[in-house]
Simulated scan of single mutants.
Amino acid sequence: MSADSNGRPFSGQVAIVTGAGSGIGRATAVAFARAGAHVLGVGRREGPLKETASAHEGIDILAMDICGDGAPATVVSTAVERWGRLDHLINNAGATAVMPLEETDKQTVVDLLSLNVVAPSLLAHEALPHLRRTSGTIINLSSTYGHRPMAGGAHYAATKAAVEQMTRSWALELAGEGIRVNCVAPGPTRTDVMLHAGLSSEAANDMYAYERDRIPTHHIASAEEMAYWVLRMADPAGRHATGQVITVDGGLELI
């Protein structure tokens, strides 16, 4: 689809963005809306979702735990019933956990897999019939630690490695149907994810400082910088790119 007269390449298209209440998800929802798309922002907390929706009139919201029974079907049907189509599924919602092997807890592992691997899989399954009709895209969010070791975070890294392998496998499976599947793997990005993982603000800032020193560009990315790459991977002009994992980490993966 070509851009409209205002240069908005996603005009008339529909995107679902999970984890849209904050961070990269919020920035991605806003970026798609500014590019002309109708956006369904999904997340567990209604308050933060309303803040996201207030950033652009093109964003509608759905407060729902995507790990709940029947949630993926509800998310997809809500978008399709509202706008009559679905063009892009952005599997952004995820969780991290700082959990050394000595402290490994079964429920933490199960919860990580449920949110980071199972929920995106079921959302993609539900979205598939609609993406076939629009030659749509699936964009998964991984991490630089999806393909680098992470001491103290093995299970989080393992879920992101799974996301990257699902991306490649789905891309190969669906290429003949015109559906593209790609992945953006952020490096350290300034969001509230560390706080949700249980770190204090001071500990999170210490970690950002540590990471900044290690990153070749000495830069901690913003959520908006990551949203830029999500939008680029979904752009109709990039229809020949599929099965790609684009790492955006200031060169961290190179060391």
Rank of each mutant, 00 (worst) to 15 (best):
E164C: 03
H88W: 12
G146Q: 09
L62A: 02
L174Q: 08
S5W: 01
E224M: 00
A197D: 13
G152N: 06
S22G: 06
L113P: 09
A157T: 02
L195D: 12
L141K: 12
K106D: 07
L174S: 07
M233F: 11
I24V: 08
T52V: 05
T104D: 05
V42E: 01
P100L: 11
H88L: 09
A197L: 05
E173P: 10
A209S: 13
I24A: 03
P48L: 02
E164D: 04
R45A: 08
T108Q: 12
T247S: 11
P188V: 03
L115S: 10
H155P: 02
A15D: 03
P9M: 06
L49G: 10
P100W: 10
A161L: 04
A203E: 15
E126V: 07
G36F: 06
M64R: 14
I66K: 03
T96V: 13
V14C: 09
E51H: 02
T137G: 12
P9A: 10
A154E: 02
H219I: 14
T104P: 11
I255Q: 15
E173Q: 13
L40K: 03
S5A: 15
H130Q: 07
A158Y: 00
I215G: 00
A221D: 12
H240T: 07
A31S: 10
R82S: 15
R148T: 12
I215C: 11
A161V: 05
A204G: 03
E126L: 03
A97W: 14
E46G: 03
R239E: 15
I220S: 05
A175E: 08
A95F: 09
A119P: 13
A119R: 00
L89M: 13
L141R: 09
H147W: 01
T96R: 14
V30E: 04
A97E: 15
R214A: 15
T52P: 01
A37W: 00
T108Y: 04
G250M: 05
A95W: 02
S5C: 07
R44T: 05
H88P: 00
R44V: 02
E126H: 09
R133Q: 15
I66W: 08
L113R: 09
I16W: 05
A209W: 11
A31N: 13
R82W: 11
G25I: 00
I90W: 02
V14Q: 08
